[in-house]
């Protein structure tokens, strides 16, 4: 049981990073990114490619980040002259295109079977220690990402982002280039998501197209909305809560419920969670802090 919780906490840390990166884009930049999982996939497939070509861990990480940066740049180029809702659908389709291409280009990606056997991190340590080391690493990285995001939103860039979100016309009148702002925040969020993808690939030692289904994007969305849009601590809380709830869903099976019920539980809980919070608590568990106060 203890091993199980260790495992859940490690994954929750990775999801925490993903939620932070989406929060930068959605919470502060109000960019409706429905293809966030594709940025994560850049990281995981970068790791997988480096593994199959035996290029080493560091190359895998850099490759993943490079893919994520390119995709984020493409996302922001697409957003140049699109309204929010059009852009949201466009990002969703790009994520789907990427997933279908990855499923079909079997030579590079292993197709639907994916690529397995990636070297787990700290595999040279003995069993319980290695798992503790992984948790420590993920926790440190999550804390570092949190600190980075906090610094970022307090910097000039963060203030500019908030201004762009609230009053885009005022922001451009004050001389901010909205396009550059959006691009910067897309790439920053993309790099964090790519790193999270790399870590995920090397934790599970498996990369496959099913990890990139668009429901996974909405899973991250759920974390951000339930935790609290534009509150970095909130989205981490959201990530841990959702991850812990979802990890316990398979135990419903013990109640003798049909299998379909168990597989429907995940989308149902995510959808219902998002809807309930949007209707009755749109600011999430921890709302955004403005001038030292929760709004």
């Amino acid at each position: 049981m203890f091993d199980f919780w260790l495992h859940i906490l490690i994954i929750a840390c990775i999801y925490g990073m993903l939620a932070l990166s989406l929060n930068l884009q959605m919470g502060f930049g109000s960019l409706l990114n429905f293809g966030h999982i594709a940025l994560f996939g850049c990281g995981s497939y970068g790791a997988a490619l480096a593994f199959t070509q035996q290029w080493g861990l560091l190359t895998g990480l850099l490759l993943g980040i490079a893919f994520a940066v390119l995709l984020a740049l493409f996302f922001s180029r697409l957003g140049k002259n699109l309204g929010t809702d059009y852009w949201a659908i466009a990002t969703l389709s790009i994520a789907e295109i990427m997933r279908i291409v990855l499923t079909n280009e079997v030579r590079w990606t292993g197709g639907a079977q994916g690529i397995s056997g990636l070297t787990p991190l700290f595999s040279n340590l003995a069993y319980p220690t290695s798992q503790y080391a992984r948790l420590a690493l993920m926790a440190v990285l999550l804390a570092a990402t949190l600190a980075f995001c906090q610094l970022l939103i307090r910097s000039r860039l963060g203030l500019a982002l908030k201004l762009m979100r609230e009053e885009p016309n005022l922001a451009s009148a004050l001389g901010y280039d909205l396009e550059t702002l959006r691009r910067t925040i897309m790439v920053t969020g993309g790099v964090i998501a790519g790193i999270a993808g790399f870590l995920y690939a090397h934790y599970f030692s498996f990369v496959g197209p099913d990890q990139l289904l668009s429901t996974e994007t909405f899973f991250i969305w759920g974390m951000v909305i339930i935790g609290g849009l534009a509150n970095n601590y909130g989205v981490i809380v959201g990530a841990f809560i959702l991850q812990i709830v979802m990890a316990n869903v398979p135990f419903f099976r013990a109640l003798d419920l049909p299998t379909d019920f168990v597989s429907a539980a995940r989308p149902f809980l995510i959808g219902a969670g998002i809807l309930v919070f949007l209707l009755w608590r749109p600011n999430g568990l921890l709302s955004e802090r403005v001038a030292g106060k929760n709004v």
């Binding site: 969305w221 429907a264 995510i270 949007l278 209707l279």
Partner: peptide
Amino acid sequence: SANALIASLALSMILSAIFLV
């Protein structure tokens, strides 16, 4: 309208989960 778009996605996830059951 952004929230409404997200809500409609959430609603479709719920509907498809109900139909799966």
